[in-house]
């Protein structure tokens, strides 16, 4: 066997990739619902069997809206279960339903402290769980590493939300995204992925409440008309 075939064989492996191209994923990813983002992710979507770390700079930049198309697809088309662990706010059922998520396939676990990582590991071991969304603001690197190993043997998507200050720390996650809002767009910085580095931020057009009706017709800085509300109360 010549050495060139050996090298070619090695490059066939999903865990080996060239530095100037995207790695090939062992399993095709779940489409994110945003073509620009799909093109930049190895596997063409959110990676199955891997930890995806999401680092939103502020709350409310559209961090969940970014996941919503994939979650809707998993729950409705693949009939897979979604597990949300330790959300910092109440997940609002009508909005999830409007986003296309099948509520009868959604479990919410309020797990304080270290129980969140435990619940996450258990959910990864279960059959039929399509995606796990977990908020781990104070997770240790060792716990994150364990979650990554657990994710590798499962086929579920695992999204971990951490504060943006963690971006400078090393992480075992194969995919790390920093999220930032800019006007109507959500700016995605690909901090880490399998394959060549992507220094340019990606503007993603996530669903914004503006696109629906009720948009203000006049300049938003003006005071809204308080129809029957007494002006004295808001002085």
């Amino acid at each position: 066997m010549s050495s060139s075939t050996t090298l070619a064989q090695i490059l066939e492996r999903p865990d080996v990739w060239r530095g100037d191209a995207l790695a090939r994923a062992a399993l095709p990813g779940v489409p994110t619902g945003f073509t620009d983002l799909d093109r930049e992710l190895p596997g063409g979507g959110w990676p199955r069997g891997g930890l995806t770390e999401l680092l939103p700079r502020h709350r409310g930049v559209g961090e969940l809206s970014l996941l919503l198309p994939a979650l809707a697809r998993l729950s409705r088309d693949e009939l897979a279960w979604l597990v949300c662990i330790a959300p910092p706010y109440l997940l609002y059922a009508p909005a999830l339903q409007a986003g296309g998520v099948d509520l009868s396939r959604l479990l919410v676990a309020s797990a304080p402290g270290r129980d969140a990582a435990w619940a996450c590991e258990r959910s990864l071991a279960a059959d039929g769980v399509g995606a796990i969304v977990v908020w781990l603001p104070e997770v240790q690197a060792a716990a994150l590493r364990r979650l990554q190993l657990a994710a590798e043997v499962s086929q579920s998507l695992l999204f971990v939300f951490r504060p943006a200050t963690c971006a400078s720390q090393p992480s075992p996650a194969p995919l790390r995204l920093a999220l930032e809002g800019e006007g109507e767009h959500l700016i995605v910085h690909l901090l880490k992925r399998r394959g060549s580095a992507q220094p340019l931020p990606l503007p993603i057009a996530v669903q914004r409440p503006l696109r629906l009706r009720h948009a203000l017709a006049r300049p938003a800085s003006a005071l809204p008309a308080a129809r029957s509300l007494p002006r004295t109360a808001i002085a």
Binding site: R59, L64, L90, L91, Y92, A95, G99, P209
Partner: peptide, 8 residues
């Protein structure tokens, strides 16, 4: 109207 994904 629009509804938020997270409610306080």
């Amino acid at each position: 109207g629009p509804r938020p994904l997270c409610l306080l």
